[in-house]
Amino acid sequence: SCNTSVKDARVSKRKAAANDEGPKRKNKRRPDLEKTRQSVDALRAEFEAKYKQQDQLGEGGYGTVFGGYRKADNLPVAIKHIAKEKIGCKHVDETGKQLPMEVVIMLKLADKRSRSVRMSAPVSLLEWYDLDQEVILVLERPIPAEDLYDYINHNGGSLEEQEAKIILKQLVDAAIDLEEKKIFHRDIKAEDILIETSSDVLRVRLIDFGVGCFIKRGACYRKLYGTPDFIPEWFSLGRYRAGPTTVWQMGVVLFDTLHSDAAFETTEFLKDRVRISETLSENCQDFLQRCFITDPKQCPTLEQLRTHPWLNNTNTTHRQTDSFMYW
């Protein structure tokens, strides 16, 4: 379960006075609904005064994202609206209040962010608003940038191996950074990876922590969140763990980056109906094969991936790969 509790709310029960002497204590009353409504209206007015919302950028199962900017300085932002009825992962704070797990994770990332980011990091949460029927997240919006799925399609359907290596090296670093902070993204895929193209060297940014959670040592997850096809343990065991799942997702992203025409499908791979292209360098093929080890006990760690020769060899031949096949 992704529901967590920091600390149970402590409730102090007081006994009523045994006689009529002295001042009587008033019973606790429910929050005044009119005051609550005024508070929500004030928050919405504050949001609208600070930010200009523009065209829709995307929509998923847990929210809708719009482009926009901060009025004070024209800073580009992404504005994510999450209907409270669609919040899948929640966190219970010390007061007993339920918060979207995405907010809690991003607040932790902001609190723990180091000054020397490894050239790959989640986008920042600038502000958030807890309204009556929805939660609004105001997020950093790198410009110019596009998600990896679109970037691949705009570059002919696959990337050269050297360019894919630049992306994967940063992505593995980002995944290690999350793991060190005990954060499990759960759904790393091309659509949730932004590629900044403002300089000669591409920069990778991670987005959408809507199904993320905090990692507990040795924990297995028995409730599925994210994209089922990116969690192989789910098909065989009905459960999954953070480390092996994230390593598998590294492989899926790399596979989709280097192979054109069709996306990787875990179910087809498990049936031995997907092949890694032999036109890739031997080190790259080995990297993918290690990501796709189906036994979680034999799966490499993210740190082991980081030291793999393919990520650390700068002499990879630039070559475009052909399509893979289902048969």
Rank of each mutant, 00 (worst) to 15 (best):
Q162S: 15
V92M: 15
R306N: 04
E48I: 11
R203D: 04
T307Q: 12
K182H: 10
G218T: 12
E102V: 09
L43T: 07
T316S: 15
A219S: 05
G243I: 03
T279C: 04
L171S: 02
T314W: 09
D261R: 14
V201E: 14
L237G: 09
Y221A: 00
K90N: 04
F230Q: 09
K35M: 14
V211E: 01
V204P: 07
N312D: 01
C89Q: 11
R44F: 12
N155R: 13
L305Y: 06
S198W: 07
E46I: 04
Q162M: 08
R37L: 10
E140M: 11
S323A: 06
K182V: 00
F264I: 03
G157A: 03
E191F: 00
A164Q: 01
I82Q: 12
K297H: 15
L109R: 01
A164L: 02
V104R: 09
L99R: 13
T279M: 02
K84A: 05
N315V: 08
P309M: 11
R25D: 15
P296R: 13
D261S: 13
R25W: 15
N153V: 14
R37N: 11
C284G: 00
P142A: 04
L109T: 02
Q320L: 11
I105E: 00
A175F: 07
Y240Q: 06
I105Y: 03
T317P: 03
G156N: 03
G243T: 05
L202F: 09
S236P: 02
K297W: 14
G238Q: 03
K71G: 10
F47R: 14
D295A: 11
T321S: 14
H259T: 00
Y62W: 09
F230I: 08
K169R: 10
I176W: 13
R29M: 15
R275T: 15
G96Y: 10
L139D: 00
D32E: 13
V103S: 10
K271C: 04
E134Q: 08
L75D: 02
I82C: 11
R241P: 00
P309I: 04
E34G: 13
F184Y: 12
E102Q: 09
I276E: 12
L305S: 01
A18W: 06
R25Y: 11
H308E: 01
L178V: 05
T314L: 12
D261K: 14
